Simulated scan of single mutants.
Amino acid sequence: MTTLRKEAVHYIEAQHTGIPYYQVTPQEARAMRTATLWQSPHRPKLASIKDYNITVRDGAAITLRLYTPVLDKTLPVIVYYHGGGWVYGNLESVDAGCQLLADQAQAIVVSVDYRLAPEYPFPTPLYDAYDSLVWVSEHIKAFGGDVNRLTVAGDSAGGNLATVVAYLTTTLGGPALQAQALIYPVTNVDFTTESYQLFGENYGLDAQGMQWFSQHYTDEANFTNPLVSPLQLENVRNMPKTIIIAAEADVLYDEGLSYAEKLKAGGVAVEHVTMPGLIHSYFSKMNYFEDATNETVAKIVEFLK
Rank of each mutant, 00 (worst) to 15 (best):
T2M: 10
L4R: 01
K6N: 15
Q15W: 05
Q15A: 05
Y22V: 10
Q23D: 10
Q27N: 07
A31W: 08
M32C: 04
R33A: 12
T36M: 09
L37V: 15
D58E: 14
A61H: 04
T74Q: 06
V77H: 01
V79G: 00
Y88R: 03
L91R: 04
E92Q: 06
G97W: 00
D103R: 00
A105F: 03
A105I: 04
I108C: 03
V112W: 09
Y114Q: 06
T124L: 08
I140K: 10
D146C: 11
L150K: 04
A157G: 05
N160G: 06
V164N: 01
G173I: 07
A176I: 06
L182A: 13
I183R: 02
T192A: 13
T192S: 15
L205K: 08
A207M: 08
Q211E: 15
Q215A: 13
H216L: 14
T218N: 11
T224K: 13
L227W: 09
L227I: 12
P230N: 13
L233A: 14
E234F: 14
N238L: 06
M239L: 15
A249Q: 10
A249F: 07
V251N: 01
S258R: 09
A269S: 15
E271K: 15
G277T: 14
F289I: 12
F303L: 06
